[in-house]
Amino acid sequence: MTYLLHRVLWTLPVVWGVVTLVFLLVHLVPGDPAQIMLGENALPGDVSALRSRLELDRPLAEQYGLFLGRVLRGDVGRSFISQRPVAQEIAARLPATAELMVGAMAVALALAFPLGVTAALYHGRWPDRLASLFALLGVAMPSFWLGPMLILLFAIRLDWLPVNERGGLDNLVLPAVTLGTALAALLSRMIHASLLEVMGEDYIRTARAKGLGERAVVWGHAMGNALIPVVTVAGLQIGVLLSGAIITESIFDWPGLGTLLLDAINTRDYPVVQGCVLTISITYILVNLATDLLYGWLDPRIRLHR
């Protein structure tokens, strides 16, 4: 319980720091944000009206206080383009991004498990080398190259899968593979390394000495412990998927949080940019917190050591 409380309290200053940095973002704009949002030819009256709407005409400390207060109430302002509350805009886009992330995680796990386990069981032989090659290439391959290549092969040449629309499961395949491949590469390496390490432990030798078959040793004894570090890495990578989704969404015109952020950047809609950045990073912090707590629950030694 102390561990839980300690870990939760630890998160609060980080959240505060993130909110502060996101607040400061608009103040990093070179020049007057209101002028830049409206363009060079805007009338001075319009610029000062927008400045006042964005509270930029107040002292910095007061702006900060107002921003903190609004964030606490879940209100990050109104979109400059659509005039709708930013929170509503984000809520409308979240399901698409969540769907993409679940798809990508499923692809990553489906690829990483067989590859990682095979590599560990055939350590030093050709299946291991093949899996290592996949891991090396998967990490180095940019998603913004893989995506177009998948479109070229499966949508244009073979005409097997649709592209550029959100809808059924077949529409999700290409974006999910694009986003999930790098994670699959990373996880397969983790599963490989973790399983190899566990297979060298004394209790595995004992299990073998008792006469257990290899299948029972791997699945009954080794896998559970080997998965603990993999769960942590997979959890921490959810945030990376969230930011990777920005690129994948732009490749496939996927109507999620990433395309909302990129559109907002292009139209200089700063409240939406702030809202998206805040949503993505707070989600990341919460997922990390949940992963840490899960890790502590899975492996009691962690709780005692901290």
Binding site: P13, V14, V15, G17, V18, L21, V22, L25, V26, L28, V29, P30, G239, V240, L242, S243, G244, I246, I247, L261, I265, Y270, V273, V277, I280, S281, Y284, I285
Partner: peptide, 22 residues
């Protein structure tokens, strides 16, 4: 703690946000 705050922005997000305003 400053490191923790910077690490709370996953992947490229902070770079995207900074280039968006700069």
């Amino acid at each position: 703690r400053l490191v923790d705050i910077f690490l709370a922005f996953p992947g490229l997000l902070l770079a995207i946000a900074l280039v968006a305003v700069l």
